[in-house]
């Protein structure tokens, strides 16, 4: 019986010359779990995912992916992993059907034609199957790519920013499908920038500058961050923001529409700092910190650590 963990790796490291793209990342993801992989651009998300599916050779680290040794058995991992690349990377000069047939042959899927037909009808692309993949819109390319990744019935899906450039409706449909697949036992590692997507994940892993900064459910991440946030409304918020930024005890000031969120991990210091401003015309109220507040705080602090 395979282990409970679909991904169980320790100390994964990848260097490109002097740059350490991924620096000793440990990650555990249970089977059937949707793990959100968050981090700013260039933080090492794509590199980490590529190491998991054998596209990049790790410079350090060990562990297992679907029970296979992540370093030595990457060829076997490939049979059971679906990898959805950030950029559409199926053949644009092949039709939808030809792409699916290619994938089916590459994985040696039994009953190839039936599998392709079923996939086309599930996608609702039967009528457009002879259309070139390159002529599809972004949303449809996305759906085709996901379908192609699922064709060989992988146990783990690695999705690299799958919803970049996809409209909100298509994104919602996409996530509904992810959840129904997870319910069937599929494991997901999804790199994303979007906080609303992060909130739809069972677990989160936050990476910045190649280092894993936080993991856990979104509640756990929020609790551990122990962040106090006040929101403030009123006129001239920009001027207020400038006044508040950099005051001792205030760690971040972020504008959200008509409000400012002022956060700090030191509650007492924060309240001392904002005390002089707590007067009309400003309306202050303590709010629950959101994931975004936490992540921006994590990103900022990782910069500070660096400096």
């Amino acid at each position: 019986m395979p282990t409970e963990l679909a991904i169980d790796v320790q100390g994964m490291t990848k260097r490109f010359g002097a740059l350490v793209a991924v620096d000793g990342v440990d990650l555990q993801v249970k089977r059937g779990e949707i793990c959100g992989f968050l981090g700013p651009n260039g933080s090492g998300k794509t590199t980490f995912i590529r190491m998991l599916c054998g596209l990049l050779r790790a410079d350090g680290g060990s562990g297992h992916c679907l029970g296979y040794n992540v370093i030595t058995e990457s060829e076997l991992i490939k049979f059971e992993v679906g990898y959805l690349t950030q950029r559409f990377s199926f053949y644009e000069d092949l039709t939808i059907q030809e792409n699916l047939e290619f994938v089916a042959r590459m994985y040696g899927i039994p009953g190839r034609q039936a599998a392709v037909r079923e996939c086309l009808s599930r996608l609702g692309l039967v009528d457009r199957r002879i259309q070139l993949a390159g002529k599809l819109s972004g949303g449809w390319k996305q759906r085709l790519a996901l379908a192609a990744c699922l064709l060989h019935q992988p146990k783990l899906l690695l999705l690299d920013e799958p919803t970049a450039g996809v409209d909100p409706k298509a994104r919602r449909d996409f996530w509904n499908e992810i959840h129904s697949l997870a319910a069937q036992g599929l494991t997901f590692l999804i790199a994303t920038h979007y906080m609303d997507e992060a909130e739809r994940c069972h677990r989160l892993a936050f990476i910045s500058k190649g280092k894993l900064l936080a993991t856990g459910s979104s509640d756990q991440v929020l609790a551990r961050a122990n962040l106090t946030t006040w929101s403030v409304r009123g006129p001239q918020l920009l001027a207020l923001s400038n006044d508040l930024t950099g005051l001792p005890g205030i760690e971040q000031v972020v504008a959200f529409g008509n409000t400012l969120h002022v956060s700090s991990s030191q509650q007492a210091a924060l309240e001392r700092a904002i005390a002089p401003f707590r007067k009309p015309p400003y309306i202050w109220q303590p709010i629950e910190s959101g994931l975004e507040d936490v992540f921006i705080r994590l990103m900022d602090s990782s910069h500070t650590v660096e400096a």
Partner: peptide, 13 residues
């Protein structure tokens, strides 16, 4: 260049 190498390499070949 077209990025399809990434897909090709992620397949067992």
């Amino acid at each position: 260049e077209s990025g399809t190498m990434e897909t090709l390499l992620s397949m067992p070949t």
